[in-house]
Nucleic acid binder design. Structure first.
Length: 315
RNA sequence: GGACGGGUGGGUGAGUGGCUAAAACCAGCAGACUGUAAAUCUGCCGCUCCUUGCGGGCUACGGAGGUUCGAAUCCUCCCCCGUCCA
């Protein structure tokens, strides 16, 4: 049972990587009595600092930052796991009467937090291994045919080549003994007690790409490669999840001698551009976003955001 | 100067007479995505017109000619690039 909580404002800053979300968040937090809550699947990992663009201490302006550095490399972040952590963090902020300001790089996590997730089983590695094994033993399109049998409606929505989503869909059907599409129709539990106001940073594409390129250079100059080397030396498994993140995978190849640093840099910049594009595609559909056509460190954007937030909270 | 090899759409690179606006991959663009999401996947990708169709027109495989019903593919000359010989 959810006890009735008074509705408090929660600010979510959405936008592509390198748009200046962290800067804007700290700036707003200073003026609104807020604290920053990361909503980013990669910043959750301890030790993965430079490449995930975690705000450095100096950039935090003394504002507490939450949901950063909580997982070890060997752990796996998930949308559901993030939701739990975030709800706990929000409860804490509520008690202390501070406004949460989310820096949202991972759209799925925000949605999971705000709208809730369907009540479905968690991932089961054993089942997944078995599915992958039988996939090996069959012809192409096998997983899609399996889902077709379990849940034709879901099968229509997932491409035959999308193994990752097919496996999750089949997993849910099997574990919950119900079709996924039916599960998804059931009620989700949206976040209680918070009223989300969303600000979107949407700088011009070319300018964003230029920033991405420059930021990648800066990250490398600030010792990103050494960070990766140290993480590997500290005993983290080379195939641990965060080593698959943009940049970490390329630099791991450099350390293995499989790639030259200049090529890695170009690959990182390109992967980041593509990532930013996917984020923009996702956020474009996000409802109720107040969009700002600029970077979060732009004073005009900052003033505009603050003014807009004040309007919202006066209601 | 001579001998080979090669010049294909933004890039790499298949293609040796019709099924080729031209494979594949990359880049790019658009999109999907309810527990891996910095992930995964899908569509488009010469120009243009419309009655948006397995539709029409135009342009295209270094350049110019030629052979052929038909050429990126064959022939001739020219221009570039690479390797080797002088």
């Amino acid at each position: 049972m959810n006890q009735e909580k008074p509705l408090l404002p929660l600010v979510a800053i959405v936008g592509p990587t390198a748009a200046g979300k962290s800067t804007l968040a700290a700036w707003l937090a200073e003026r609104l009595g807020g604290e920053v809550v990361a909503c980013d699947s990669t910043q959750l990992y301890r030790g993965f600092d430079i490449g995930t663009a975690k705000p450095m201490v100096a950039e935090r302006r003394g504002i507490p930052h939450h949901l950063i550095d909580l997982l070890e490399p060997g752990e796996t972040s998930t949308a559901g796991g993030y939701r739990e952590l975030a709800i706990a963090a929000l409860d804490d902020l509520r008690r202390r009467a501070r406004i949460p300001i989310l820096t949202v790089g991972t759209g799925l996590y925000l949605r999971a937090l705000l709208e809730g997730l369907a009540d479905v089983p968690q991932r089961s590695e054993e089942l997944r291994d078995r599915l992958r094994a039988s996939r090996e033993a069959h012809s192409a399109g096998y997983l899609h045919r399996v889902l077709q049998r379990l849940d034709p409606e879901a099968a229509r929505k997932i491409a035959a080549g999308d193994e990752q989503k097919l496996i999750r869909a089949i997993e849910i059907c099997l574990l919950s003994r119900r079709p996924l599409s039916e599960v998804h129709r059931s009620e989700r539990a949206p976040l209680q007690g918070w009223h989300a106001v969303k600000i979107g940073l949407n700088p011009a594409r070319e300018a964003l790409y230029a920033r991405i390129h420059a930021r990648t250079e800066a990250m490398l100059q600030h010792g990103w490669l050494d960070e990766v080397r140290a993480l590997l030396a500290s005993g983290a498994a080379e195939d641990a999840k965060p080593f698959g993140f943009i940049g970490y995978r390329e630099l791991r190849s450099v350390l293995r001698g499989e790639m030259k640093i200049v090529d890695a840099r170009a690959a990182i910049q390109q992967a980041t551009r593509r990532y930013a594009k996917r984020q923009q595609t996702w956020f474009r559909r996000e409802s109720g976003v107040h969009w700002c056509a600029g970077f979060g460190d732009d004073p005009a954007v900052q003033q505009q955001s603050l003014a807009w937030l004040r309007e919202q909270q006066l209601r």
